[in-house]
Computed example of a mutant assay.
Amino acid sequence: MLLSKQKKNQAMKGNRFLISITVLGSAGPIRFVVNEEELVAAVIDTALKSYAREGRLPVLGSDLSNFVLYCPLAGMEGLGPWEMIGSLGVRNFMLCKKPQTEKVVDNEKSVTLARKGTGSWKAWFHKSLNLKVSSH
Rank of each mutant, 00 (worst) to 15 (best):
L3E: 13
S4L: 13
K7Y: 04
K8D: 12
K8Y: 09
N9D: 14
M12L: 15
K13S: 14
K13H: 13
G14R: 09
N15Q: 13
N15G: 11
F17R: 09
L18I: 11
I19C: 05
I19N: 07
S20Y: 04
I21E: 01
I21G: 06
T22L: 14
V23W: 13
L24F: 12
L24I: 15
A27Y: 10
G28H: 11
R31K: 13
R31A: 15
F32D: 12
V33M: 12
V33K: 15
V34P: 03
E36R: 09
L39I: 06
V40Q: 05
A41R: 10
V43T: 09
V43D: 00
T46R: 07
K49Y: 02
Y51G: 03
Y51P: 00
A52G: 02
A52M: 06
R53K: 11
E54I: 09
R56P: 02
L57S: 10
L57P: 02
P58K: 01
V59H: 07
G61Q: 08
S62M: 11
D63W: 10
C71S: 07
P72Y: 01
P72H: 06
P72G: 07
L73F: 05
A74N: 06
A74D: 06
A74Y: 02
G75P: 02
M76I: 01
G78T: 01
G78N: 04
G78V: 00
G78D: 02
G78I: 01
G80Y: 13
P81Q: 09
E83D: 10
E83W: 12
E83T: 07
M84T: 09
I85Q: 06
I85K: 01
G86R: 04
G86V: 05
S87V: 08
S87N: 11
S87P: 01
S87E: 12
L88I: 01
L88R: 12
R91H: 09
N92E: 08
F93N: 02
F93K: 01
F93T: 08
L95F: 08
L95M: 05
C96S: 14
K97L: 14
K98V: 08
P99L: 06
P99H: 00
Q100K: 15
Q100H: 13
T101S: 07
T101A: 07
T101W: 06
T101Y: 12
E102S: 15
K103H: 12
V104P: 08
V105F: 05
V105K: 11
D106Q: 10
N107D: 15
N107S: 15
E108D: 14
K109D: 14
S110V: 14
S110P: 03
S110H: 05
T112V: 12
T112P: 06
L113F: 15
A114P: 05
A114Q: 11
A114R: 10
A114T: 08
A114W: 05
R115C: 04
K116L: 14
G117D: 00
G117R: 07
T118A: 06
T118F: 01
T118E: 13
G119M: 05
G119L: 00
G119F: 00
G119Y: 05
W121G: 01
K122P: 00
K122H: 00
W124E: 04
F125D: 04
F125Y: 02
H126W: 05
K127V: 00
S128K: 07
L129D: 07
L129Q: 03
L131F: 06
K132I: 10
V133P: 02
S134A: 15
S134H: 14
S134E: 14
S135P: 04
S135T: 09
H136F: 13
H136E: 15
